[in-house]
Amino acid sequence: MSEISVLSEAGRDLVVEDDAFPSDPEADPPREELERHVQTLEVASDVELDLARLHEAVERALGVFDTGRQEQRTSLDSALAPVFHQCLDVPTRVASHIGFWQYLALFEFSHLIDARWGGRDGIDVEEKYLGTQKDLYSNHVARLWWGAELTFDGDDYLATHRLFERQRLVNYVLDSSFRRYRPAAIAFAETLWTEQSSTIDAVASRFNDSLSTIQLETRSRTEVRNQLEKIREHVG
């Protein structure tokens, strides 16, 4: 038995209704008010959150990467995603709880989110703190963790690194339905991590269409990879 903190739906509403945060870059999350909307959730299994190590890694990464540049921002994600996954040792049942990610984003990692997404035109920063139950790519902490969860292979985070190196790739994988079959998510990252966005789109579309006849869950990672390579050749 373990306990985790989650933000309630009312807490989410409070952030939405807050005029200053996060639209004003200087404003912090209204943590004092939000405290009232933090609930404790009991989890059957052991959950280990090594926040100290995670904060240390975030600080170090923010010191190394220049978040003013697009390619450095994706590298920041690529460097941090495996660390988030390792330090937040929770089962998927917990990870599927959006309130868990909202709590972490607002109470623990708001400075990271601000540095990664804040102050840029056309970016809805609020969704990087909140996100919804259904999508994996909005809430930034959830995005890092789930990207790693879907592409890590034992202790090997190579595919995770590759996935986060291309924003288009990570967005596509986190938005697809084949992501739920981990060998497919890994094969996808492995095969396409060096490709242009247009190629990624075209391959993904053909691959998705092929799954109306192919039973994805019976295919191995190698088989999926071979298929993706064939498609890449075809669309190229």
């Binding site: 259904k134 992501r179 079959y181």
Partner: peptide, 17 residues
């Protein structure tokens, strides 16, 4: 051919046969 049961849970991103 082989009969399988596909297990799919959207919320926890888990799908396997």
């Amino acid at each position: 051919a082989e009969p399988v049961v596909v297990v799919d849970c959207e919320e926890t991103q888990t799908r396997y046969a």
